[in-house]
Amino acid sequence: MPEKIKVKKRGNELGFQIFMLSTKLFGLRGAYGLLYIVCAHYLLFDRPAVKGALAYTQRRFSGEGIFKKYWRVYLLFVNQGKALVDRYAVASGYDGFKINVEGFDQVKNILNKGGKGCILLTSHVGNWQLALSCLKELDKDIYLLMRPEDNIAVKKYLRIDTEGKQVKIISPEQDFGGTIEVMEKVKNGNVVSIMGDRKYGFPALEVNFIGDKAGFPFGAFHIAATLECPVIVLLTAKLGHRDYCVDFKNIIRPKYKGKTDKKQQLKKDMQAYATILNIFAKTYPYQVFLFADVWHKQ
């Protein structure tokens, strides 16, 4: 079982209600406006969040002075805030976003073949929760390997655990980090979503990510190679005020050739994933919401 990770609680009932009211009264732009004040507060007082964001911005925008570094962090906070506001809007029934979906036919083809399902590899980029709404047209259950949300306000307003009956949570806090349940669901033809860019206590392998060595968890790749099922990389990005793109085009098919040095065998596929994220970070630098030093050796 992976070590239990302490996650700092951010956001409370009052805060969410203020954003909810702003969205209702002034629309999305009104709620976005509030973010500039709230994010300034986080920039000044939330040291763990700033430290986590700096780990990314210092690498993505290397060689810049201190003022610029913090300015990048601030923009990152604002963009994540916008993603959360959009997420709240969608969870509340707002359907004004134009979502351009690419590669979804490939997902349908894989699942329509019957037999095994697939692993949907998500990352802390864009607005992956919003992308999950695209999967609702599949006649399949979607499982998320994630800690049950224990911040009541976040759970209530962002509907973390109750996206709908089709989306269900597999807790990594159960025996064997939930891996046995993940396998069972994939074997039964379902889609299981696993985060690929933060290890949360799971074993990791080194990859090159934004010009430095980073530790990415290899569990998703190991399960896929063992079950011989595909890994679909899910990317989402906000293109404009109400425009999103959701990309299912990148499919990785990990496979073990022989029984020896399996971790080494996974490295190539994991690097392929890291390279996809590298390209994303170059294209959408303010939509990488890792907020953790994945480059730090632990």
Partner: peptide, 28 residues
């Protein structure tokens, strides 16, 4: 062994003994 070795054991049980570990509560 770790959680990822559990993945291999589940597959070994299936391939070599035809067994599915379905009762997740009894896994440990």
């Amino acid at each position: 062994l770790d959680s990822l070795d559990a993945v291999e054991i589940v597959v070994l049980l299936q391939r070599n003994f035809g067994l599915e570990v379905k009762d997740l509560n009894k896994g440990r």
